[in-house]
Design a protein around this nucleic acid. Structure first.
Length: 233
DNA sequence: GGGTCCTTGGGACATCGACC
DNA sequence: GGTCGATGTCCCAAGGACCC
C-alpha cells in the first residue's frame, strides 16, 4: 500500500493543482511577468500578431529548449550549464530588450508608465537578476583565448545600457518634479530603475576593464575569487 | 478599439515523502 | 527499495485589465 490520498475527488485534485500554481506564480511574480513579456515580444517579432502555438504533446529535451527559455534561477543555480546555452541566452535577451526598446517613446506618457516600461525592458535584458545575468555574461566569454574578442562580445551590452541611461535620464529627472516628497512612489520607482541600469552597465564595463588590464586570466581570477560584485549598491 | 502587460490554468516532468 | 500521491517547477496559451 502506498501513501493515502489527501485529495479524494478529482475536483479536489484539480483545485489543489490550481492553488499550487497560483502560489508558485505569486512567489515568482516578477520573473514570470518578465518572461511573459519576453514571450509577447518574441511572438510579435516572429509574426506581427501574437502567434497561437500548438501545445506541446511532450516536453522536449532540455538541450533543445534551454537556449531560448533558460530561466534566471536555472542560470544561477546550474554550474554545469553549457557555454552554448549561456551564449544564446544572453544574446537573445539583449535582442529581445533591444526590440522592446523600439516601443519606447519619448512622448507625454505618464512618468509612472514610462518607469514601468523601462523596468520591463531592463528585466528582459538582465533576466531580472543581475547575479544570474553577470554569471551568464562571464560564462559566455570565459573560454575565449582572445581578450579583444571577449570584449567585442560585451560591447553591445555596454552600448545598449548607455542608450537606456540616456533615454531614462529625463524620466528620472521628471519623476522628482511629479513626486518631490516621494510619497507617491513615483520618484522611488524611477530611481530604482535608474540604479539597475547603471549597475548593469557597471558590471559589463568592469568586465571590459579587467579584460583590458589582464586579459581572460585576470577576469577568471576575479570571478573565481568572487571579487566581482553583481549586486545593486 | 487596439496594443500592452499580467494572471490564470492546463500539461508535463522532477522530486519528495508516506507507506508497505 | 518500490509504489504512488503530493508538491514544486516550468512552458505555454488564453483571456482579462489597463491605458492610450
Amino acid at each position: 500500500m502506498a501513501r493515502p490520498r489527501k485529495h479524494k475527488t478529482e475536483k479536489e485534485q484539480i483545485n489543489a493543482a490550481r492553488k499550487r500554481r497560483r502560489e508558485w506564480y505569486h512567489r515568482n511574480r516578477r520573473m514570470e511577468s518578465a518572461k511573459s513579456l519576453e514571450r509577447y515580444y518574441h511572438n510579435k517579432a516572429i509574426n506581427h500578431h501574437p502567434q497561437t502555438q500548438l501545445r506541446r504533446a511532450q516536453r522536449p529535451s532540455p538541450d533543445v529548449d534551454a537556449p531560448v527559455h533558460a530561466s534566471a534561477s536555472a542560470l544561477a543555480n546550474s554550474p554545469l550549464i553549457s557555454l552554448q546555452i549561456v551564449r544564446l541566452n544572453t544574446q537573445e535577451r539583449l535582442t529581445s530588450a533591444q526590440k522592446a526598446m523600439h516601443t519606447w517613446r519619448n512622448d507625454k506618457m505618464k512618468i509612472r508608465h514610462k518607469t514601468s516600461n523601462m523596468q520591463h525592458i531592463v528585466e528582459l535584458w538582465t533576466s531580472g537578476s543581475l547575479q544570474a545575468w553577470g554569471n551568464a555574461l562571464y560564462l559566455n566569454v570565459q573560454h575565449d583565448t582572445n581578450a579583444a574578442l571577449a570584449e567585442s562580445k560585451l560591447e553591445p551590452h555596454v552600448t545598449f545600457g548607455q542608450h537606456l541611461q540616456d533615454c531614462f535620464e529625463d524620466v528620472s529627472r521628471r519623476s522628482f518634479q511629479d513626486d518631490p516628497s516621494g510619497s507617491l512612489g513615483i520618484w522611488g520607482a524611477a530611481q530604482l530603475v535608474r540604479r539597475e541600469i547603471a549597475r548593469a552597465v557597471d558590471v559589463v564595463e568592469e568586465f571590459c576593464l579587467i579584460l583590458r588590464d589582464g586579459g581572460i586570466t585576470s577576469l577568471r581570477d576575479s570571478y573565481t575569487g568572487q571579487s566581482l560584485n553583481f549586486q545593486i549598491i
